[in-house]
Design a protein around this nucleic acid. Structure first.
Lengths: 336, 336
DNA sequence: CTGAAAGCGCTAACAA
DNA sequence: TTGTTAGCGCTTTCAG
């Protein structure tokens, strides 16, 4: 196995200087290279299997074709992996690779992560959170172009993308109202996160005052809590005809509660939800109608925006609410 | 915002040469540096906030402190993210970062990915698959130390780690036999993957010949197919007292089938399964006893092994079957 | 004990 | 139209 050829090897093989090789291979240097020379160089590079060493190139050009991806535990959350994939695909399309770090959820560690990535000369930073939230960035981050993924900046000044919770909630609620439901409950979590407030507000607006008492908060957005909350909601004499669950995990608890109470879905009760987790929403029976969190799209957008900002440094930072398309399944029907 | 200081800046500040700075900061050069000089250098570096530029260092030392991570769609699979996390954590502990690529499942793309990572001078490669399988590596991979994650090499010669499917199956089946079950069914998939065969063989060995007719294969390991298969298994007159499901998704289907047939878990039927997916196993009711796929541990081991092989290039490749601990919940009881 | 200098592989001025 | 040369920021002989 021969050693990797260097630019000097192809220069020698083509009988030109390394500068010429560099120029033809990079398409730089305008129209100053003769067609014949150019061809010979390409030929030589090809036959030697030459690949430029990007470390050396990076040292020279100060661009490494790597994007730093900082997560707050991103790899942990099942669906958040789609954010990585979206970011990865967009990066790859532009000839970049993702250099990953995880802070393990410790906001203090983010400055450290920025430092490590800066040291490696990543061209830019994507800072991702697994849940939609507001983040406070260390000022060291400002040294590099960066965009926030699945969260908003506390102090502005940088691009960000987050799910359009209001739009998704409206869409999923209108599945219910379009069928004629008027008594629509909301089963949600007590956790203080943007998603909770945005979904609840939208419900309040669309379900109207007559639904005001059909609101139930439980300590966490888990299946057991969803079950418990659903039980209370569904045992009432003036039981709702439909419920909008904060997320699929809670809806999974509600399915069980409904089954235990002898309610058949969707005839006795319609259900819609949020997140569209692939392990849950299509696996429940009947299939759960749910607004999808656009993780892949957000991931893609984040690095596309990053690349744009890298190429035009003067541009204004952009914020983008990503649409949450509803995955329609079989958990809704007209009220009985 | 000042520019990042270079080594020359700290050399100037400390009144020494850059060589000296390099030596004290890297602890290289043995005892040849005076304690006082050493202190002054550190002081200067500290106060300037100096961080060595790892691109420049990489060019010189040919080590980048980056490990290439090639996945076949890794970020896509919900639980496989834990492999990334394990790999990431081990890398971080050793001062390395993960440079990620995804082949999108196309085996042809793996050579391309190896090329891209090699060009970036990653110190080694982790090649991960989301499902336990046998992989054929392009020979270009041999140029770099590499280890297989969640799969075995077709031709040997490299280190690998995969789940101990037999051990996990035994453990989970013995939950059943210990309770006195003798009629234990196996509900599995027709897909031709190592996990399917290993789990089924173990079941055949432990459940004994009297269970031979309690075997049911369905086209895929999904919830709907699990439901359909379970229905057939549970409708039989000589219904099993327990079932070992290929995975949690199928078990989820079985739960529904049991409920529809009026069987109460675990009293009328015990269930154990495999994968221990966090969105499913603990969320079902009753909680599902399941053998966990040790994704995190495998990820960690893979990079630890990689680092070991990088430091002792002569060492023999190692293979490691990672234990699958059983997560005990409430889906088992003695036979009625 | 420390400094000078070479060079990792590449690109971009500047010459020719 | 092409070649020469000077670095990018660091580590590492080799002199002193």
């Amino acid at each position: 196995m021969a050693k990797r050829p260097r630019i000097a090897d192809v220069a020698a093989a083509a009988g030109v200087s390394t500068a010429t090789v560099s120029m033809v291979l990079n398409g730089t240097g305008g129209r100053r290279i003769g067609a014949e020379t150019s061809h010979r160089v390409r030929q030589a590079a090809e036959s030697l299997g030459y690949r430029p060493n990007s470390v050396a190139r990076g040292l020279r050009t100060r661009r490494t074709q790597m994007i730093g991806f900082i997560g707050d535990d991103v790899a942990t959350t099942p669906f958040a992996g789609q954010m990585i994939r979206g970011a990865h695909d967009a990066a790859k399309d532009a000839g970049h690779l993702l250099l990953m770090t995880d802070t393990g959820g410790d906001p203090g560690e983010i400055a450290e992560a920025v430092e490590a990535l800066q040291q490696r000369q990543t061209d830019g930073l994507v800072i991702a959170t697994m849940y939609h939230q507001v983040v406070e960035l260390p000022e060291s981050a400002a040294a590099l172009p960066h965009v926030l993924l699945n969260s908003r900046p506390a102090r502005g000044g940088c691009s960000w993308t987050a799910p359009d919770e209001k739009g998704g909630s409206e869409a999923v609620l209108s599945e219910l109202t379009a069928l004629g439901h008027t008594r629509i409950a909301h089963l949600t979590t007590a956790e203080d996160v943007p998603a909770k407030h945005l979904r609840a507000e939208t419900w309040r607006d669309l379900a109207g005052p007559e639904a005001a008492d059909l609101y139930r908060e439980v300590p966490s957005a888990s299946t057991p809590h969803g079950y418990a909350g659903a039980l209370e909601l569904l045992r009432r004499a003036d039981r709702p005809t439909a419920v909008f669950c904060f997320n699929d995990r809670m809806a999974m608890g509600l399915y069980r509660a409904a089954a235990e109470l002898g309610l058949s879905l969707p005839d006795d009760l319609s259900v819609v939800s949020y997140d569209d987790q692939e392990l849950i929403a299509p696996a429940l029976h009947p299939g759960l109608t749910s607004a999808a969190l656009p993780h892949y799209d957000m991931g893609r957008w984040a690095v596309e925006e990053l690349l744009r900002r890298m190429s035009e440094p003067g541009a204004e930072p952009a914020g983008r609410l990503m649409p949450c398309p509803v995955a329609r399944r079989d958990s809704t029907a007209p009220p009985a």
